[in-house]
Write a protein that binds this DNA or RNA. Structure first.
Length: 598
RNA sequence: GCCGACUUAGCUCAACGGUAGAGCAAUAGUUUUGUAAACUAUAGGUUGUCGGUUCAAAUCCGACAGUCGGCUCCA
């Protein structure tokens, strides 16, 4: 299993320098081949390779077909083993050097503003780029590289800027390391939840239903329902009260909450019905606040923890959709904790404890499979994005940071990632392909209580304003399912395996006994399937193994005559002998405990 | 939404200007099988949709839809 990138920050090692140089070789190759048709912008080394952005003049286009000739040119440059030399320049000289390149000029102006001195790197004598390095000593150090993909990317990462063309590649110190990397990526592809979703028959899409709108098959639904059951049980145990609220609301509700201006691009358009303007809800918070407000509350009731398995509708741009992990209708294990200010810290601690517990049961390791990100409001340069109240922000950020430290949670800070109404703790998971993704969040909110006049009666009999903690326990079920499918490569823990036991018949005459046995399993609350098709035992085993079913039981003459079962456990070639009743008790116990064992 | 690519039977793929093929799955029959693939047969397609070029289009061109890799955004 890969480590989270934020837990190892050794960016400036040799490999980094090598990749940085590979990116320059790419740039030089591009200039040699298409020098008069492109303007180079910039490109860094990354955790798994490098990329290079450039602008194209007129209607010149780079396509995948160009990769072969670019790679050939890069090989030439590497073979030439050109020395890479560093030179510090004045801004004035640097501007002269890059006078025809508006991107470099813009960059130089930023360097000038900071009062820094530009560094340039020469590859041989002809090619020079504005770059701080580090670099290899010469182009010959690049022993293995490959161009991977072509993409569009906005200049400075801003949608409003021009879209440049980006080429991704990777480089290693040896061919073997490159091969290993490519092999690893191919392995990750095999675990892709979209592929496994098809192979294991978990979910499907239909064009006519719409994009980003998956349907769960009976098997996929088992996983979903087991996860829901887990959430309901555990949250109830920890003092949450589950509610059901409407998926629609008047648009006024979101104007009042203040969500509207921030979210209107991701909301579905208003539906006019009679005199009302309704929208599909993009979040549940305001509903829960109205529920809270339906009657007065005493300080004795706090914290009030309102939870819901809540469907939410968000219009995501088509290019953002992806399998189950990015959809247009998702269902969140949502809750809003309404508490006194002095309870907030303890409540957040409790939430982190709940998250750790649930992740542990799901089989995820803290610090390895997931970690925390403290997302702060970068309030200095952007007053529009965040609600203005510096003192409240400071306080909230301090509380979240303290909780993370006291809980000894592995975390890193990320400015500019907060919600508009307050800072948050993001639960970051590492996917099998190495990408990091926000699974869900815990948010500290001092804005909504004001907007909605949330109140409780304190000890003195006076009204006081509470704090709201927005949180999820396992996130949205779609994304969590996608993550679990990939994490387990479809070999799920017994408790949420769609089929737990396959009962395979040897011959036709054993079918009846199979049915009887399967019914006994079902009566015990286990999910069993009978496989009595006219096929060889070997073929049934092969198919059942491919389906990653935890327990396989073959029924033949031997079993007709005895209460003993030869159970083939997933991942094992040999069978384990059980008394029937003992096997049922064993499996039931593991399911009850949500154990990872078989 | 933007940049790049892809879309052929339920699935995985082939055919790459001369009116579509295979394996698996499905169905029927034979076989009655003991822990990773029994045998035979049948059926399955206006090649994503709509237009265009051509004597002829799955194949070339265009539009649209969907999917994928990125960017932006995000749970």
């Amino acid at each position: 299993m890969l480590k989270l990138t934020h837990m190892k920050k050794d960016n400036h090692n040799q490999l980094w320098a090598l990749r940085h140089s590979a990116e320059h070789v790419l740039m030089e190759a591009m200039l040699r081949l298409y020098g008069d048709k492109i303007i180079m912008a910039m490109g860094p080394a990354t955790d798994d390779g490098f990329y290079f952005d450039f602008d194209v003049k007129g209607d010149f286009k780079i396509s995948l077909e160009n990769f072969a000739e670019i790679e050939a040119e890069m090989k030439k440059i590497i073979k030439e083993d050109l020395p890479i030399t560093k030179e510090e320049l004045s801004v004035k000289d640097a501007k002269k050097l890059f006078k025809d390149n508006p991107y470099k000029i813009e960059w130089l102006e930023e360097i000038e503003k900071r009062g820094d001195k530009p560094t340039v790197f020469w590859t041989g004598k002809e090619f020079v780029d504005l770059c701080a390095g580090p670099h290899a000593k010469s182009t010959g150090a690049i022993k293995a590289f490959k161009l991977l993909k072509l993409a569009g990317a906005y200049w400075h990462g801003d949608e409003k800027n021009k879209m440049l063309t980006r080429i991704y590649g990777t480089a290693f110190e040896s061919q073997k390391e490159l091969d290993d990397y490519l092999k690893m990526m191919a392995e990750a592809e095999k675990r892709d939840h979209r592929k496994l979703g098809k192979d294991l028959d978990l979910f499907v899409f239909a064009d006519i239903i719409g994009k980003g709108l998956p349907m769960l098959t009976p098997r996929g639904t088992v996983i979903r329902k087991e996860l829901e059951k887990f959430v309901l049980e555990e949250e109830t145990r920890r003092g949450y009260q589950h509610v059901v609220t409407p998926h629609l609301a008047k648009v006024d509700l979101y104007k009042k909450s203040g969500h509207y201006p921030y979210y209107k691009d991701t909301m579905y358009p208003v539906m006019k019905v009679d005199e009302e303007e309704l929208i599909l809800r993009p979040m549940t918070c305001p509903h829960h606040f109205m529920l809270y407000k339906s009657r007065p509350h005493s300080y004795r009731e706090l914290p009030v923890r309102i939870a819901e398995i809540a469907s939410q509708f968000r219009y995501e741009k088509s290019g953002e959709l992806s399998g189950l992990s990015r959809v247009r209708l998702f269902c969140l294990a949502d809750a809003h904790i309404i508490c006194a200010k002095d309870q907030a810290k303890q409540e957040i601690k409790n939430v982190l404890d709940l998250i750790d517990y649930m992740n542990k049961i799901l089989g995820l390791k803290k610090g390895q499979d997931y970690c925390y990100r403290l997302s702060l409001g970068d309030r200095s340069d952007d007053n529009k994005k965040y609600y203005k109240d510096d003192e409240a922000w400071e306080k909230a950020e301090t509380i979240l940071r303290e909780v993370l430290k006291e809980a000894k949670a592995p975390f890193f800070e990320a400015p500019g990632e907060a919600a508009f109404y307050g800072p948050k703790i993001d639960i970051q998971v590492k996917k099998v392909n190495g990408q990091e993704e926000t699974a869900f969040t815990v948010q500290y909110d001092f804005v909504m209580p004001q907007r909605f006049d949330l109140a409780y009666i304190n000890k003195e009999g006076k009204e006081e304003q509470p704090i709201v903690i927005h949180r999820s326990s396992i996130g949205c079920f779609e994304r969590t399912m996608a993550f679990l499918i990939e994490h387990y490569a479809g070999a799920f823990p017994l408790w949420f395996s769609p089929v737990q036991i396959a009962v395979l018949s040897v011959a036709e005459k054993h079918a009846k006994h199979c049915e009887k046995l399967a019914q006994e399993f079902k009566d015990a609350g286990l999910r069993a399937e009978v496989w009595d098709e006219n096929e060889t035992v070997g073929n049934k085993i092969r198919k059942a193994v491919a389906q990653k079913i935890p327990y396989l039981i073959v029924i033949g003459d031997k079993e007709l005559a005895s209460e003993k079962l030869a159970v083939r456990l997933r991942g094992e070639k040999d069978t384990t002998e059980f008394e029937k009743d003992k096997f049922i008790a064993h499996a039931k116990k593991l399911v009850e405990e949500r154990s990872g064992e078989l």
